[in-house]
């Protein structure tokens, strides 16, 4: 075989190798599918990266708590101090301490000047109030109270029919946290005031109350502070056990 033939064979072999590499390594997914997959994978990647941060912080908090408990078990006073610090943090998150900050205050009151739906004699006002609270929470409210009753995870709002001889569709009394709360209702919420007000407008909650002869006045506290009290009702945990105990 001549040197020229050898060079040609070498060139052909290298080219063949490149072609084989391309054949097995190039993604031949259709463009639309590729872009869709790319976007969904990128979104999943961003979420996974964010979750790494959340998990890292949770792990750091767990490590700190474990350290405190280990010190307590070793009769070190500093461990108890750390546990109490964690308790303060958790109580704030759970609604067991008062909270102040910017927010909104909504006053719902009977107004006979407003129109009402003909023939409507009663409305489940607890459902109406739950709707307002749900909207505020969806808009990022950190804390909500109705007539001074702080709402926590286990809170309930319940209509009490027949306890009031009210002239309007509302009976004028509900139970919040099992405690009677009389109209007019004042809902205080801490959070970004404009965002909280915007969701109330977007859901047309004012109009929904107005057709039930209820005025719906929203006051914004941009600089605040508006204060919601601490929850003082019974604490849960009689039936629930923490996983792992």
């Amino acid at each position: 075989m001549t040197p020229v033939s050898l060079k040609a064979l070498f060139g052909v072999s290298v080219t063949l190798g490149i072609l084989l590499g391309l054949e097995f390594h190039v993604d031949r997914t259709p463009a639309v599918q590729a872009y869709t997959s790319y976007l969904s994978q990128s979104e999943a990647l961003n979420a996974a990266l964010a979750r790494t941060g959340v998990l890292t912080r949770a792990l750091a908090a767990g490590d700190a708590q474990l350290h405190a408990l280990e010190e307590v078990s070793g009769h070190a006073r500093v461990g108890l101090v750390d546990l109490r610090r964690e308790l303060v943090h958790l109580e704030k998150q759970a609604g067991l301490t008062p909270l102040s900050g910017p927010g909104v205050r909504i006053r719902i009151a009977f107004d006979p000047k407003l129109p009402t739906i003909a023939g409507l004699t009663s409305v489940d006002e607890a459902t109406q109030l739950q709707m307002v609270v749900g909207a505020l929470q969806a808009a990022g409210a950190q804390a909500v109270a109705i007539n001074g009753q702080r709402l926590v995870a286990t809170s309930s709002i319940r209509s009490v029919h027949g306890l009031s001889a009210s002239a309007d569709p509302f009976s004028g009394v509900v139970q919040v946290n099992g405690q009677p709360v009389l109209a007019p209702y004042e809902i205080a919420a801490i959070g970004a005031p404009d965002r909280l007000a915007a969701i109330l407008t977007a859901e047309a909650l004012g109009q929904q109350f107005n057709i039930l002869e209820q005025s719906f006045a929203v006051s914004l506290f941009r600089r605040g502070p508006i204060t919601v009290p601490a929850y003082t009702g019974p604490l849960p945990g009689k039936y629930a056990t923490e996983v792992g105990m």
Binding site: L80, L83, R84, E86, L87, L90, E91, Q93, A94, G95, L96, V152, A153, T154, Y231, L235, P236, G237, Y239, A240, T241, E242, V243
Partner: peptide
């Protein structure tokens, strides 16, 4: 403190729970 922490954790929802229901 641990009893108070348990109630606060249940209410804050920071721990998974088991029980009848």
């Amino acid at each position: 403190v641990e009893r108070q922490l348990h109630a606060a954790r249940v209410l804050a929802g920071t721990v998974a729970l088991t029980g009848p229901g």
